[in-house]
């Protein structure tokens, strides 16, 4: 069955509209966080998608190293690119939340710091790609770098376990957030909507990379014929 881009985008829009409605209007204020919980409904899904897209990037990089198929390099690069965008959204929305909750946008909390390190590691990935001219070498070197850069993902995820942190956690008890009923529904809908939109963006980014490759091959071919 053919993938229907328009239907998929329609479903994504409906899920996200519902998610926004639940988060802004149906969900009650949380006991500890109060109205700030609504920021959290939009911040957490973006953080989850950041980790998810970097896992996709890592798996594709490993598959590229095993098979040398260029499609895996294309997937890996597209996923890392989206990781940068979602990383910025996560960092900025986290800073807005931090300012409202702690009175300061940035206070070098372990979760903030390790997520910034993660983001910078993937900025390095793109600088590396730009610095290698030979396409085959670029793909191999960046795939190896990607595997190393991924080490920052578990570091960011587990940071509040390794170091004392003010960052809220979802687990029950121990200072964790106690979400229930409509709050869980709002969070689940926002996570689902976030992932659906990510899948749509990933298909677009991958499509652009494939056409770019095709164009570069055509230019090289034309130059070879002309020369």
């Amino acid at each position: 069955m053919e993938f229907r881009d328009d239907i998929f985008l329609g479903i994504t829009a409906v899920v996200n509209a519902l998610a926004v409605y639940f988060a802004l209007f149906l969900s009650p204020a949380e006991v500890e966080m109060g109205e700030l919980v609504r920021v959290f409904y939009f911040h957490l899904p973006q953080a989850i998608v950041t980790y998810l897209t970097l896992v996709v990037s890592l798996v594709s990089a490993i598959l590229f190293l095993r098979t040398k198929a260029t499609k895996y390099d294309a997937i890996s690069e597209s996923a890392a690119f989206l990781g940068l965008i979602y990383g910025v959204i996560t960092l900025v929305s986290g800073a807005i939340w931090a300012n409202a909750a702690w009175g300061v946008y940035w206070n070098w909390d372990p979760r903030e710091t390790t997520t910034l390190v993660l983001w910078l590691a993937y900025v390095g990935y793109f600088f590396l790609r730009m610095s290698v001219e030979n396409p085959e070498r670029r793909s191999s070197v960046s795939a190896v770098y990607n595997v190393l850069a991924f080490l920052t993902v578990p570091l960011s995820y587990l940071s509040f376990i390794i170091w004392p942190s003010l960052h809220p956690r979802l687990a029950e008890g121990g200072g964790g957030l106690g979400l229930s009923g409509t709050m869980v529904q709002a969070l689940v809908l926002n996570i689902l909507g976030g992932i659906l939109f990510y899948v749509w963006l990933m298909r677009k980014a991958y499509g652009v990379r494939l056409i770019k490759d095709e164009l570069e091959t055509k230019i090289a071919e034309d130059a070879r014929i002309a020369g």
């Binding site: 920021v39 939009f42 910025v88 959204i89 939109f197 963006l201 677009k204 056409i211």
Partner: peptide, 30 residues
């Protein structure tokens, strides 16, 4: 504010990707 940040960024990215794709396609045909 956060909702606006998320959606403006993602919508901007979508439009940018669509535009880049259409530019590349026209270059490929031309």
């Amino acid at each position: 504010m956060v909702l606006g940040l998320v959606w403006v960024t993602l919508a901007g990215l979508s439009l940018w990707l669509i535009r880049v794709r259409s530019n590349l396609e026209s270059k490929l045909k031309g």
